[in-house]
Write a protein that binds this DNA or RNA. Structure first.
Lengths: 376, 376
DNA sequence: CCCTGGTGTGAATCAACGC
DNA sequence: CGCGTTGATTCACACCAGG
């Protein structure tokens, strides 16, 4: 069984870190407030959706909001939902690392309020993602379109911090080499994946499919990261996180859900390290300066470089710059200058001659990176 | 030319009804306030999105992206945008008939604020509709998911009034006899439909496709109804309304847009009564990417794939890439790499073991497709 | 006539590092 | 923190020129 941590125990901070891979039992906001600053890499939140059914709704002070149905109270209930949303999002913000991101899923009943509040709290929206359901519930009365999707918002904690995790190259490679779009297609959670009680009834009304969580986690976290789910339910986030070699923290109030989640996560077998390696692109590779090519003898002062069609040529100088037609500069600056552009990637623009073929000097960098060149 | 009605003329209410099928020139809220109570059946609104763009964006080939940086899309703050949104929505509310509905289209930049304000003003959300673009602009820097959709909210004026128009049966009949879903697939507006000036440049930066408006209008209005568009632009709403035998009212401030819209609408030929029964859209075979197999459990991380003769093998990783001999990549890239080729169709090259037989992974795609046959 | 290859472009909140 | 430098990065169509 995955460990369950009563909130009272968490508050005794004599054993920091013991909350990793546990389910904290208690109120969402109170539990969040007991966690340290900047302690999680990502958050996935599946907050309560439905205002009309008068499900238990708590104010930030944890008092219960009365269920209501007349006009005035309808307004009041939006207000209450907003206050509740602001409270848990604010608490999430503190717990999130500066370069962390948050996912929130919802339907048209609540997602617009969530999105606006995220913006108000200075989260920076990165995408809205549409989960298209292959098998949504039909609209029985024929008075609306079939509600066939839910919406997720992906946001970074801080507009200025650009270093959030996004495994772009892996997503693209897994998607037939085209970049991943904002509309995703998955079946709803059913069949063997759907947790059922002894009575055969579903344990949780809105259990999310593991495939959805898998894509979320693979896209926006790295192995070893910590993922927090403040509305843990039956622990889909925890189960997928464990399987994918991530750490989780869950917060949940209901004992039934905690027990189901705990048993479920315990039975998950994590994947091995090799299977979990995330594919990265050029950006992740160590930088190799043009000077290094020169110093290792892969190119030589006086050597001539050209573009792929031999329209322009330039000579390599001993200081690691290029010169052409009275102009000089870095491989990038000179490449831009000869073409009359603002910018240019000199590594792919400039070519050297090998036999009768022209090859981009970028290929010489891989020689350096592979360690075959003679460097001190 | 469709008639243009200066706002000052509209205010002289000696000739009621003369605003039907005209473009009112003037400020959106002021013009709305000059229209009578309960005078339109439906509203389609494409308000400014408040994009908040940073600096210039270049494509990988260094060409500049023609961004939406028009004055009308600039707002000082979320607060200013909210005030603007509240003002025009409130004005719309008065003009709408009690059983009327409103459509608002937007992106993640603004749609959450619009949705929350609609709820605050006591509109009743009926659906959120996702317009999936077949040909969206890519994400050039690889820092987010490709933003491949926009969102429309469909709401009724009054929660208690259930008699709004929804042509459920016509939609279903036009959709291969299954009910219309909340996710719609259309190309962006381009080619001959896109209005161009004498300079060959697009007249309006955000012209919407007629197919989108056609489905909106066919779904939620009846022939002879009045449809208002408070941000008329180049008049897509008016053109489609006229073609479909509905009346329109447009509100627009910019003279250039008014002139283009006016000429455009004048050239529209209304359909006869018989043709006003709905048109059907095409269904494409869904593309199934490798990660779909993984996410659906048809293949698993750690599983080994080989070519048909077992000369090469590779291991499936959790991120949807293959790895072999220190190399990794998509099924296509790695297939090419192990064979020393430039390209390879990974779907037919890589095989999995079933019993003692090897089968191409392409066969697994048909399993997926058979469950998705009714999808766009 | 068709086919191919090159070019242009669309509501975009689109980088990271070192000094 | 600001600023300059390095150098990574795109998908589906429409249209046109040329064979």
């Amino acid at each position: 069984m995955a460990a369950v941590l009563p909130l009272a125990d968490l508050r005794q901070q004599d054993r920091p870190g013991t909350w990793l891979n546990t389910i904290i039992k208690g109120d969402c906001v109170a539990a969040l407030e007991a966690l340290p600053d900047h302690s999680v890499d990502a958050i996935f939140a599946d907050p309560p959706y439905n205002l009309q059914l008068g499900g238990a709704l708590h104010r930030p002070d944890q008092s219960l909001v009365d269920a209501v149905d007349d006009d005035w109270d309808q307004f009041a209930s939006f207000q209450a939902y907003d206050a509740f949303t602001r409270a848990w999002l604010l608490a999430c913000r503190r717990v999130l690392k500066p370069n962390g991101t948050i996912w929130v899923i919802g339907s048209y009943h609540n997602i617009f309020r969530v999105g606006a509040i995220l913006q108000d709290l200075n989260f920076w929206l990165l995408n809205d993602i549409v989960w298209r359901k292959t098998n949504p519930m039909p609209n029985f009365k024929g008075r609306r379109f079939q509600n066939a999707h839910e919406t997720m918002i992906w946001a970074s904690r801080d507009p200025k911090v650009k270093s959030y995790t996004f495994n772009y190259d892996a997503l693209k490679a897994s998607n037939d080499d085209v970049q991943m779009r904002s509309d995703w297609l998955f079946p709803i959670c059913s069949g063997g994946e759907r947790l059922k009680g002894e009575d055969g009834k579903k344990v949780h009304p809105t259990q999310k499919p593991e495939a959805l969580l898998a894509r979320v986690i693979m896209a926006s976290t790295k192995p070893g990261d910590v993922i927090l789910d403040p509305f843990f339910g039956t622990g889909t986030t925890g189960a997928v996180a464990k399987r994918l070699g991530r750490n989780f923290v869950g917060i949940e109030r209901e004992q039934d859900y905690i027990e189901a989640a705990s048993a479920r996560i315990a039975s998950v077998e994590p994947l091995g390290k090799a299977e979990l390696t995330v594919m990265t692109g050029k950006k992740a590779e160590p930088r190799v300066a043009f000077n290094t090519l020169l110093e290792s003898g892969l190119v030589k002062p006086g050597q001539v470089l050209t573009d792929a069609r031999r329209r322009w040529s330039a000579i390599i100088r001993a200081d690691g710059t290029l010169a052409a037609g009275g102009e000089a500069g870095s491989i990038h600056r000179l490449g831009a200058k000869v073409q009359g552009l603002d910018a240019c990637n000199g590594w792919t623009f400039w070519h050297f001659e090998e036999g009768s073929a022209l090859k981009p000097i970028d290929e010489l960098r891989s020689v350096i990176r592979s360690g075959l060149a003679n460097l001190d």
